[in-house]
Design a binder for these strands. Structure first.
Length: 646
RNA sequence: GCCGUUGUAGCUCAGUGGUAGAGCACUUCCUUGGUAAGGAAGAGGUCGUGAGUUCAAUUCUCAUCAACGGCUCCA
């Protein structure tokens, strides 16, 4: 007999060789029908695998993340079975579960899968699923596994096998499909009730662009149709929040073939938002001791050789233009220009920290395939600043920047994000990273200390630092699930020396300042793209391009409407009058759709009483107010940068 | 940059080897209407661009540009 400890602490005794599924059955049949896998001593196992020692056991269902990913991984095998049936001789690379669903990378030879084929594959999969074929695990000797895939001529699985130890190799078979796989899997295919193959894409073998491109098929499955329907509905809803759609509908920005890829044109409504954000940044930075600077858009090659950008990042810069025998580059970042400002006048320790900020446009030659609405562009306004400080001041300064992020996030109600401490990869010193192992260690430790001492939750990621030092990136997600870095806070121990930046210490020595690169609002482009999705186009009043719309019931009240409009404008409120010859219902509908926060309906009653019938976007009629009172209310809401109507 | 899909009116989309259609938006007129679409008429496109096949191309083929879904990349 063995002892099985369950999550509630209860210890039950079973015969050795019992499976998690048997245990579930002993608890309840209903539970047994839901069990997808089991966590055995913290490891995810097949629910059907024999347990022969004392263990701690947790039964995993659809409600557990590990249960879901097992389900999706098994779904990938089911899809592979269907693909092998339809495309005999297809070779399979890997088919993992992902965040939402699964994919499988396949070499189809000369054949192609088209969108129409997906429906047919879904049908095949549904048929195979109904058979409720068990996923059978088999431990297999390496020699035998090698023989199996050599026979099959599958170089991909042979490649996987070459990295595996004998004794740690398992095959899984369901129906006619056998795959090299460490598992685990769900008990049988019958659990998979709803299937949607979502897309086809190319994917480099092993993620290396020098390798052959395989066909990747993405899909998602569910234990019932209802959840699939809900998922599809959610995708539809997400699409409505897509900043590219909203940006067009709300007149925020546009793109034009004649201007070029990744070069957004900011329309009047978008420009209002830019200016409000800059106002916020200026106020905040002024209060935090920053000074503003302005620098040119181009600079000579020599400066980028000094900065090290050319050897490390030439690929991301627009090619140079030649003038009088000199090469000039469009700036991809502001830092070198700012370093020159630091260097322009001698500095002493009394001048530090020296903080300079600029909202300048930068130009980056992003790969064409990577451009994405406002989120990834080739012309960007960075909310950039550089702080030059001593090592002693670093902690305080870096922390102040961190606090600045949090202050902004609060203003915008941003709560879903991840802070990533991005570290260097020692094996790439001298290639991707400046070759200063000691300084890397030291500065990484300094940054980590700030995060730990301020109790900021963060994750560490290797091999994602800037070439000149470690950084903190703030990660966010777009409405359709793509991941982006919103804000960034970087340490630079390299540029100070490269540019021979120096200050006189209190002891009358010379020292090199540490530099902090920071962009808490990231870029206008990405930040506004993010805000569009975050607010679903319903900006808080202070950011709204159009804050108030006056809607006269008919022409008879047009004059009064215009008076109100004047009053609003003279109070600094962005307002307009809908003076079209339309019914009030239509004016309201269109104002609602354009996301104007306040609508003022004015007719006979309002005109005689000098009042306004106020309507709030998304909320409807909120009552009648005297003009002055309404103006006061809106001015206050704008002044406070109130996040929403709350 | 790579793989795949798409490209028709300002927007959303239908359609065809014989030089194009809907709804919304737009313009004009009627209507002066109290909280999410009042009515009528009109105007608007050489079907992304270039070449080829054909008596004839928006439709078929190729190239090219762009967008989209991924991969790679991302200071």
């Amino acid at each position: 007999m063995i002892n099985v400890t369950l999550p509630d602490g209860a210890i039950r005794q079973y015969e050795s060789g019992v499976s998690a599924l048997d245990i579930a059955k002993s608890i309840s049949e209903g539970l047994a029908r839901k069990v997808l896998a089991a966590s055995v001593n913290g490891q995810v196992w097949d629910a059907t695998r024999a347990i022969t020692t004392d263990v701690t056991l947790k039964l995993l269902t659809w409600d557990d993340n590990d249960g879901k990913s097992t389900f999706w991984h098994s779904s990938a095998h089911l899809m592979a079975e269907a693909i092998e049936a339809k495309y005999p001789g297809a070779k399979f690379w890997v088919g993992p579960a992902i965040d939402k669903g699964f994919y499988y990378d396949i070499d189809l030879g000369d054949r192609k899968i088209s969108e129409e084929d997906l429906a047919e594959l879904e049908k095949l999969m549904n048929g195979l699923a109904k058979k409720s074929n068990p996923y059978v695990r088999k431990e297999i000797a390496k020699a035998e596994a090698l023989a199996y895939f050599t026979e099959k001529g599958d170089e991909y699985k042979l490649d996987l096998l070459s990295n595996l130890e004998d004794g740690a190799i398992t095959f899984y078979t369901q129906g006619d499909f056998t795959d090299l796989c460490r598992g685990p899997h769900i008990p049988n295919t019958g659990f998979i009730k709803a299937i949607k193959l979502t897309s086809i894409a190319g994917a480099y073998w092993k993620g290396d662009e020098k390798n052959k491109m395989l066909t990747r098929v993405y899909g998602v499955t569910f234990p019932n149709q209802k959840e699939l329907d809900e998922y599809l509905l959610m995708l539809e809803e997400a699409k409505k929040r897509d900043h590219r759609k909203l940006g067009k509908e709300l007149g925020i920005y546009t793109m034009d073939d004649d201007v070029g890829q990744g070069l957004p044109l900011w329309m009047p409504n978008g420009t209002v938002i830019i200016e409000e954000l800059e106002k916020l940044a200026k106020e905040t930075e002024e209060a935090a001791g920053y000074q503003r600077v302005v620098t040119p858009h181009i600079a000579k090659e020599s400066m980028y050789l000094t900065s090290g950008h050319l050897p490390y990042y030439a690929d991301s810069m627009f090619p140079p233009m030649e003038m009088d025998g000199e090469k000039y580059y469009l700036k991809a970042m502001n830092c070198p220009h700012h370093h020159k400002i630091f260097a322009a006048e001698p500095k002493s320790y009394r001048d530090l920290p020296y903080r300079i900020a600029e909202y300048g446009t930068c130009y980056r030659y992003e790969q064409s395939g990577e451009l994405f609405g406002l989120m990834r562009v080739r012309c960007l306004h960075m909310n950039d600043a550089h702080i030059y400080c001593s090592k002693e001041q670093f902690f305080q300064e870096f922390k102040a920047v961190n606090d600045l992020y949090l202050k902004y996030f609060k203003i915008f109600g941003i709560d879903k994000y991840v802070m990533r401490l991005s570290l260097h990869e020692p094996s790439k010193l001298g290639q991707k990273y400046v070759n200063e192992p000691e300084l890397w260690k030291e500065t990484e430790e300094m940054v980590r200390k700030v995060l730990i001492e301020t109790n900021t939750p963060f994750v560490e990621v290797a091999d994602e630092a800037a070439f000149y030092g470690p950084k903190i990136d703030v990660q966010i997600w777009s409405a359709i699930g793509r991941e982006f870095t919103l804000a960034t806070n970087q340490v630079d121990f390299n540029s100070g020396r490269k540019f021979k930046l120096a200050y006189t210490t209190q002891q009358n020595d010379t020292d090199t300042p540490l530099i902090i690169h920071r962009a808490p609002l990231g870029t206008h482009e990405r930040f506004i793209g993010f805000l569009l999705e975050h607010y679903a186009g319903k900006f808080p009043v202070w950011l709204s391009p159009q804050q108030v719309k006056v809607l006269p019931i008919s022409d008879k009240y047009l004059e009064y409407a215009q008076q109100v409009h004047q009053t609003l404008r003279s109070n600094g409120i962005r307002a307009s009058v809908d003076d079209r010859n339309e019914k009030i219902g239509k004016k309201i509908r269109e104002a609602e759709l354009s996301r104007v926060p306040y609508m003022l309906v004015v007719g006979e009653k309002e005109m005689t009483e000098g009042k306004l019938a106020v309507r709030r976007q998304g909320k409807g009629d909120i009552g009648v107010l005297p003009v002055d009172e309404f103006v006061g209310l809106v001015r206050q809401e704008i002044g406070n940068r109130k996040d929403s109507d709350g």
